[in-house]
């Protein structure tokens, strides 16, 4: 349908069925007032950032890419990655145990989750740090019988180990709940169809249920990774030189406390921003239902596997 306006005439969007009359737009006085207030506050904030010498921006600039800070950053990244891997592996195991029909096994998993979610991570880290006060010697041997090997706890549980155990074991409890939710999100008919084909529990879990659970598991796992990155700063109490502790070591020498905390904060926010962007893309992949047209990451992985399969049996009919 063509608009009933003469060529060249300004088309004023008329309401359907109404005559083309001039429209007076609704005014937003409060919106304008808020712009002004926020602009003033922002100006004050920038002013104090620039004029308050205590921020010590020159010190921030000096240490931002210093070897000790970058080394701390690297350790933070490594610790995040290792703790997350440990947490995910533990989480899958605990989730499967939790859903087991064996009450002892599911009870152990419940107890684990209850304990590690019920006590603060900070306290858990301290426990791992002081573990040698609880068990000065760790030994491998027959229960209640002779031991074959003995270790000095202080040698075995170094600050790195304490940090990895503390963060990883705690993360395992949270990942267990995420994985469990993912497994429960898969339609029961999928398990039944696989059972009807004669598949056994382990294969059904690996081949049918977990791949479909990934859609539900991946987004919160991304969240937890971002959270873990910041939680690693607690490890500074174990004297493990990650990013925050590296900054603390520096300011205990030069007393430039605030600038070094700012330096660490900027790095944290840079890395979390990068992770957030990555998470956005991953979530976008998984939110697109792979049931539709099979464009998801998993389908693509499956496609790759299929191609690889065809490469193996060369008589494949080259699809």
């Amino acid at each position: 349908m063509r608009p009933a306006t003469a060529p060249g005439e300004q088309a004023v969007a008329p309401a359907p069925g109404a005559h083309a009359q001039p429209v007076v737009k609704l005014r937003h006085p409060i919106r304008w007032a808020s712009y002004v207030v926020i602009a003033v506050l922002a100006a004050m904030f920038i002013n104090t950032l620039l004029t308050n010498p205590n921020f010590g921006w020159d010190v921030v600039g000096e240490y931002f890419t210093s070897v000790r800070i970058l080394d701390g950053l690297l350790k933070t990244l490594q610790l995040t990655a290792i703790a997350m891997v440990l947490g995910i592996v533990l989480g899958v195991g605990l989730a499967v145990m939790r859903l087991s029909s064996n009450p002892a096994v599911s009870g152990v998993s419940w107890l684990y989750i209850w304990f590690f979610r019920g006590t603060p991570i900070f306290v858990q880290l301290l426990f791992w740090g002081y573990i040698s006060a609880l068990y000065p010697v760790l030994s491998l041997g027959v229960p209640f019988g002779p031991s074959f090997v003995e270790f000095d706890t202080n040698v075995l549980i170094t600050p790195v180990m304490a940090a990895i155990l503390g963060l990883g074991l705690n993360e395992g409890a949270y990942m267990a709940e995420i994985v469990r939710a993912g497994i429960l999100s898969v339609d029961k008919g999928q398990t039944e169809a696989a059972q009807a084909l004669g598949m056994k529990r382990g294969r059904i879990l690996r081949q049918i249920v977990l791949p479909q659970a990934m859609r539900v598991i991946i987004p919160p796992t991304g969240n937890n990774t971002i959270s873990m990155l910041k939680t690693t700063s607690l490890v500074s109490v174990l004297a493990f030189p990650e990013l925050l502790y590296a900054a603390q070591l520096i300011y205990s020498d030069n007393f430039e406390t605030i600038p070094l905390l700012i330096t660490a904060s900027i790095w944290y926010i840079i890395v979390t921003s990068v992770l957030t962007v990555g998470q956005y893309y991953i979530e976008r992949h998984y939110s697109r239902s792979e049931r539709l047209a099979g464009a998801g990451v998993l389908s693509r992985l499956a496609e790759l596997q299929r191609r690889r399969g065809i490469k193996v049996d060369t008589e494949g009919e080259g699809r």
């Binding site: 008919g189 169809a193 009807a196 084909l197 004669g198 056994k200 791949p211 479909q212």
Partner: peptide
């Protein structure tokens, strides 16, 4: 599982594995 492997079943809701071709 061995017994089930010899009996085919077709479901009302198909229950195809959505992540496989």
């Amino acid at each position: 599982a061995g017994m089930r492997a010899e009996i085919g079943m077709v479901f009302q809701r198909f229950n195809l594995f959505p992540h496989m071709t």
